[in-house]
């Protein structure tokens, strides 16, 4: 039961994108087409899920026993960078189309705050391995949902009559603000 509330809490109530500002760059960059946004969501889901398990294991089974916790940032970022490299190679081989459409944003998953942020949050919240895995999954599903909804809204925004100064990123940020209001509305749920 606790795991369910943890999952719902991290997916919707404390959605990392809209309440913690993780992963704003891909949100603004890849959300021009819903299909691309969904592909990005899948790639990020895989990276976050695996990295939250691997970083938890590294931290608690290697860094803590050896008393070198201060190396956490360096090891985590290396784990994430190699995972992203793996996804990149996998996509290049299996579906060159997706690989091409995602362009520079695919290697940039390494510098996606959500990936490192979740790994660090899992440690500081003191989760056990199962909770860390659930948290990773919940956060990434929350990210995928938000980026997909955001992409569909932006598709409509393109044909809307927006004042000249607000065209592009400014109106996208205001839209994100309104979405954050909606997410804040369910704050008491968990």
């Amino acid at each position: 039961m606790e795991l369910v509330s943890l999952f719902i809490g991290l997916t919707f109530v404390n959605n990392v994108v809209l309440s913690k500002f993780y992963a704003i760059c891909p949100l603004l960059g890849v959300s021009k087409k819903p299909k691309n946004a969904l592909n990005m969501g899948y790639a990020v889901t895989f990276v976050i899920f695996v990295s939250s398990i691997v970083t938890w294991l590294i931290y608690n089974c290697i860094l803590v026993p050896l008393k070198i916790e201060y190396l956490d940032l360096i090891t985590f970022i290396l784990v994430i960078a190699s995972l992203v490299q793996f996804v990149e190679m996998f996509l290049k081989k299996t579906s060159p189309e997706i690989y091409k459409s995602m362009g520079v944003y695919l290697p940039l998953i390494t510098t996606n705050c959500a990936v490192l942020g979740v790994a660090l949050d899992n440690i500081s919240a003191g989760y056990n391995l199962i909770e860390a895995a659930v948290a990773g999954l919940a956060v990434s599903i929350g990210f995928t949902i938000v980026i997909y909804i955001f992409a569909t809204i932006r598709e409509r925004l393109d044909i809307a009559n927006v004042p000249e100064s607000f065209k592009g990123t400014p109106i996208a940020l205001i839209t994100a603000g309104i979405m954050a209001c909606a997410i804040a509305g369910i704050a008491g749920l968990v």
Binding site: T169, L173, A180
Partner: peptide
């Protein structure tokens, strides 16, 4: 108090960026 919350952050930055774009145009 909305402005200290996440929603306010997005809107503030959105308006500032619009101002920058206005200057550019």
């Amino acid at each position: 108090s909305l402005f200290t919350q996440p929603a306010g952050a997005f809107m503030t930055l959105g308006c500032i960026l619009a101002f920058v774009q206005f200057l550019k145009i």
